[in-house]
């Protein structure tokens, strides 16, 4: 899910940066509208640590292996704080582990950050009725799995539309389709992780879920 340097043409990487700047500006604008914008920074910082290390956890889905993304969990628990958290997490993943790249930091933020915001809005539907573990779990699962589905969709569209002329398009498209299929189990896994985390926090410390 992390596109490395040298894969995409320059206009696409620049477009990714431009879109990320807009997304970050909107998120920070929404954060600054809160009564105390600093209130959720400790939570965002700890979840950034979780997001950063999640890419090291690989799940074998023969014949390939996928890694955790946790964009849905970030969006569900952090709301608009998820965007700056994801940008920082992706930066450290690129610099420390070589997951992704610095030129593709913008497009990778769009691939993971936009679904995180969608997950945030999905998870907010649980507030339409009194807090209930089943309801929280359901919308948590939906947020986690939808975020991965949207991430894979954006990732695939970006790659499909940018296959270089000198490459065999059929071979590349087959590989991309294989990767999409491999992320179907990850949708379920991330949905379960988000569901269990949300229900656990609701029972142990419901204040963490409030106000997101």
């Amino acid at each position: 899910m992390h596109i490395p340097d040298g894969i995409l043409p320059l206009p696409v990487t620049l477009g990714g940066y431009a879109a990320t700047v807009g997304l970050a500006w909107f998120s920070i604008y929404m954060i600054k509208r809160r009564q105390d914008p600093r209130e959720n920074i400790p939570k965002a910082s700890l979840l950034t640590a979780v997001f950063f290390t999640a890419s090291l956890i690989h799940i074998p889905v023969p014949p390939v292996s996928v890694h955790l993304v946790l964009g849905g969990l970030m969006g569900a628990l952090l709301g608009f704080y998820a965007i700056p958290a994801i940008i920082i997490g992706l930066f450290f993943q690129a610099v420390m582990f070589g997951h992704g790249g610095l030129t593709t930091l913008g497009i990778n933020t769009i691939i993971i950050g936009t679904p995180a915001l969608l997950a945030h809005y999905i998870f907010r539907f649980r507030n339409t009725a009194p807090a209930d573990p089943k309801r929280t779990g359901f919308f948590g699962f939906l947020a986690g799995s939808t975020a991965i589905a949207l991430s894979v969709t954006i990732f695939s569209v970006v790659l499909f539309t940018n296959i270089p002329a000198h490459m065999d398009p059929e071979t590349e498209m087959t590989a991309i389709l294989l990767l999409i299929a491999a992320h179907v189990p990850l949708m379920i896994i991330e949905g379960i992780i988000t569901c269990m985390t949300a229900v656990f926090l609701l029972r142990v410390s419901p204040g963490i879920l409030d106000g997101v």
Binding site: I41, P42, S45, A49, L56
Partner: peptide, 14 residues
Amino acid sequence: MAGCVVWGFIGTAM
């Protein structure tokens, strides 16, 4: 490497 970065995030949270 991961431990160092995670410690940085924990420090920020604290």
